[in-house]
């Protein structure tokens, strides 16, 4: 698409944000009663639901259970109406399977798995509307759902996708910014220690710029953490007050 400038001369992006600004994040915990933990998050126009079941007994083949840690079973699914063009296969196509794998690897590093041997934790993520940064929003939603389910975590897991245009890293890119090409770095971080749990990079980026982009991405994740933490604290305060003051 000619004429679309990802970064204008005044330093504004297509939707009027500055390069280091995140999209508006709205989230809610405990949306479902059936699931042990659930969360709904809206990051700009990307809407994601996460539900967590567990820890519970191994379902299916017991031989898949691990004797020293919990088995984490993830499923990433996109609603057929979530993308601009109708998605024929909501799950099972290669990109979804890759996302499922990444989610599993991310949460295996963040959940204290050694506390529940021979058990299973299910994490289901459903994308209702996709507008860029699908994986990052899914990770944030799943973190909230895990906190809602009361599963012990080493730390929050916050993720953020960063693009790079005109020597400027742009945080939390939308679908339009993603599809116009250019390098994209997705990073999932444990915010307190700034440790990287998962790092994905696509398209070409020169080695010299890596440090800059990485630093901006980690800073973006820490901003997400601040928002998530506030939501969790409000939710807990609300629940505690409704349970009773005995």
């Amino acid at each position: 698409m000619a004429g679309l400038e990802l970064l204008s001369d005044q330093g504004f992006r297509l939707d009027g944000r500055r390069p280091h600004e995140l999209r508006k994040i709205e989230c809610r915990m405990g949306v479902f009663a059936q699931a042990d933990g659930s969360a709904y998050i809206e990051q700009g126009n990307t809407k994601v639901l996460a539900a967590v079941y567990g820890p519970h007994e191994m379902r299916g083949s017991k031989s898949r259970g691990l004797h020293h840690k919990v088995l984490i079973n993830c499923q990433y699914s996109m609603a057929t109406f979530s993308t601009g063009e109708r998605k024929r296969r909501p799950r099972g196509d290669r990109k979804s399977q890759e996302m499922t794998l990444h989610l599993k690897q991310t949460f295996e590093a963040a959940i204290m798995t050694q506390l529940y041997p021979r058990s299973q934790i299910d994490i289901f993520v459903e994308v209702l509307q996709a507008d860029g940064g699908n994986y990052s929003t899914c990770v944030n939603a799943a973190t909230l759902a895990l906190v809602d389910a009361g599963i012990p975590l080493k730390d929050y897991v916050c993720a953020c996708t960063t693009g790079f245009v005109n020597d400027t890293p742009m945080v939390d890119i939308s679908f339009v910014e993603e599809s116009l090409g250019g390098p994209q770095l997705t990073v999932a971080v444990l915010p307190k220690s700034e440790q990287i749990v998962l790092l994905e990079m696509a398209s070409r980026l020169h080695v010299d710029y890596l440090n800059k982009v990485l630093k901006t991405a980690v800073k973006g994740c820490k901003d997400v953490y601040v928002i998530l933490d506030e939501v969790v604290r409000n939710h807990v305060a609300q629940i505690a007050s409704s349970v009773g003051s005995e």
Partner: peptide, 9 residues
């Protein structure tokens, strides 16, 4: 010296 892709897991 361009990074084409990176995957840490």
């Amino acid at each position: 010296q361009e990074i084409c892709m990176m995957h840490i897991s």
